[in-house]
Amino acid sequence: MLSEHLLFFFSALGAFNGLALALYLWFAAKTSLAQRALAVLILMVSVRTGKSVAFYFLPDTPALVMQAGLTACLLIGPSLYFFIRTSLSNSTALGRFELWHGSALAIIAISLNLLWPYADHARIWHGPIVTTGNLLWLVYLIVSTAVLVQQRHRLPAGTARMLLLAVTTGLWLIWLAYYTSGFTSYIVGALSFSFVLYLCGAVAWAWRQGQAPVEPYQDRRIPAAEAATELQALADLMTRERLYLDPSLTLARLSRRLGLPQARLSQLLNDNNGTSFKQYIAQLRIGETQRLLLEQPGQTLEAIAEAAGFQSLSTFYAAFKKANGCTPALFRERHLSRE
């Protein structure tokens, strides 16, 4: 009995927190398109969670509640897709594809509610509509994940990146919980609550850190002259302070040291330098190991890798061979034999 009360409390609390968070994200100051897409997504998950709580614990759940929850289930996958699309774009308005896509989904959802109200067609809702909703959710999850993988170089940095990946992972877990509800029905509400609670925590943390909870990728190209100046400043900083030798160096720390926003530095490296942050740092560390291999022929490879900022010998070997086409030992042997 106590476990059921706790499950009801946490599941209902998750749904309520989600509704509150969705309203906050929608009406907050300086709201971006991606942030409103996230608000819609959280709203759909919260309504779906609320329906599950009511259906499980209340014998006579109103038909309107059931209908709203099952309709929300149809829109969770598309909401995730729109959130990811808008997060990877700096557009302040929906494009033609998104407008047609969203309009078609809205028409389908409204038509289902008007033509087959739950009160008179409960069997249809719990049959083909639920099956279609779960399948649609899965299809959009797969497509959204593929978009993230394909455009991983455009992912925002910092809190926004963590939020984007966590939302996608959380929805995968919730879908799996619903899909296997015959075996895991007790954890569905808890998973939904954990998902919403994480979002609450992430948004609160971002707010305390002075960051936007959703930071869309800055797709505007940096002018060539500005990019050249900033890349030269980055190169001068690295030459002067050799920050890449620190194994714990992060994009956030480097951006602060350079005096650029983290998203701007990420874009500068990806778009104008053709490398990710990790690739850029790895190149500098490889250059350092090449110098040490020749200047310190008696030094061990482990010591050289550590001195150059590599955290492990295996990472050093893989990066070095990829850059030079040979192992560090062979590189040293070839160059020293010429001398």
Rank of each mutant, 00 (worst) to 15 (best):
T131N: 14
S111F: 10
Y280Q: 06
E226M: 09
V143E: 02
A282V: 13
F183L: 15
V149C: 06
Y118L: 04
Q262H: 10
L94G: 02
K30G: 04
G69H: 02
Q299K: 13
L269W: 04
I222N: 01
R36A: 00
F183W: 13
F57I: 02
A93S: 15
P213F: 05
T275R: 07
I281E: 06
S103K: 09
C326K: 12
Y198Q: 06
F320G: 03
L70K: 09
A318H: 13
I107N: 05
A63C: 07
E339R: 12
L191Q: 08
F82A: 04
K51A: 12
I84E: 00
G69I: 07
Q267K: 13
Q151M: 10
N17H: 15
T180S: 12
L313T: 14
S248V: 12
Q150G: 13
F16D: 14
G50L: 03
V40Y: 08
L313S: 14
M162Q: 15
A104G: 07
P223V: 00
L292M: 11
A204V: 11
S11K: 04
L155N: 03
G102H: 05
N270A: 15
R96G: 14
L243Q: 07
P213C: 03
A252V: 11
A177G: 07
W207M: 11
A228D: 08
Q211H: 13
V196D: 00
Q279N: 08
Q267T: 13
D271N: 12
A225Q: 09
F82I: 02
R334T: 15
D120Q: 12
P156V: 00
M66Q: 14
F8N: 00
A54E: 05
G309Q: 01
F57K: 02
V130T: 14
L330V: 12
C200R: 05
H153Y: 15
L258D: 05
